[in-house]
């Protein structure tokens, strides 16, 4: 049994069968990549996992509990954090404030009214946020406006914010899309380090084969809404079905 079990999940948008009978099992403490050509249903699948979409059929179990019908914040509180394709951070706030918010969410839950206390006097939160910033190598950016940072730094911050919640499963949606080569390599190193040092499962959706083969321990190939193969990276590389899906029949 994996930490995340997707069984027979189907999702239809009008006449388009975006997902049909997807089965997926992500083992605990591994890095699992989901790849596939454009329109294969990768993002739809991800959205079904985090509560943004509700699949028409099938079940999604996280750690033995169903996530279906729960709202995004409830699913997050169960231990699933998500990194977006374009970094979603709190642009109007400072970097430290950005980092404090997930720390509060971890400690106080989805809603707790603390309107009179001074947030900078919450020692445990401030310390945790600051040490997380050190881990992410951005301690010097501390009081910077989050929106004014580079794309790579925003990505780092977003990953750091997800980690601050100590999730058990981290979902990444094309984390290196639109990044320069150097930033991409930095992100790969960061993710490697996270998966080595922390007790965490990572599921990653990616286009860039360089990223996929540097990180993944297990790969699922999705095409036209159904999984083609699920195997170890070595076997995927030469798999005829995968080559066909990616490169067309003539290749």
């Amino acid at each position: 049994m994996g930490i995340l079990e997707v069984k027979d999940v189907g999702k239809r948008f009008g006449g388009l069968q975006a997902l049909g009978d997807v089965n997926l099992s992500v083992k605990e403490n591994t890095v699992h990549a989901i790849i596939g050509p454009n329109g294969a249903g990768k993002s739809t699948l991800l959205n079904c996992l985090v509560g943004k979409l509700i699949p028409d059929t099938g079940s999604v179990m996280f750690d033995g509990q169903s996530v279906l019908g729960r709202t995004p914040h409830e699913i997050n509180q169960m231990g699933i954090s998500r990194v977006f394709q374009t970094p979603e951070i709190f642009g109007d706030l400072t970097v430290l404030e950005n980092m404090m918010i997930p720390c509060f969410a971890k400690r106080d839950g989805a809603f707790r009214m603390r309107a009179i206390e001074d947030m900078m006097r919450e020692k445990d939160i401030v310390e945790k946020a600051e040490s997380m910033l050190v881990d992410m190598n951005m301690a010097d950016k501390h009081h910077m406006h989050a929106a004014s940072m580079s794309r790579g730094d925003k990505r780092r911050l977003e990953i750091g914010m997800c980690l601050a919640q100590e999730p058990r499963l981290l979902l990444l949606d094309e984390p290196t899309a639109g990044m320069a080569r150097a930033d991409t390599n930095n992100t790969i190193d960061l993710l490697k380090q996270i998966s080595d040092e922390r007790d965490i499962t990572i599921a990653i959706i990616e286009h860039d084969m360089h990223v996929v083969f540097s990180l993944a321990q297990r790969i699922t190939v999705l095409a036209q809404g159904t999984p083609l193969v699920e195997d170890d990276p070595e076997n995927i590389k030469g798999h005829p079905k995968v080559r066909e899906a990616y490169l067309g029949e003539t290749a």
Partner: peptide
């Protein structure tokens, strides 16, 4: 002033800044 500087005030500013991130950070 106290509300502005409180954790609750921070959450309210977070709502203004990015509600998507807010929900996916486990906050309602």
């Amino acid at each position: 002033i106290r509300i502005f500087r409180s954790p609750f005030g921070l959450m309210l500013r977070a709502i203004k800044s990015n509600q998507t991130r807010m929900s996916y950070t486990g906050l309602n």
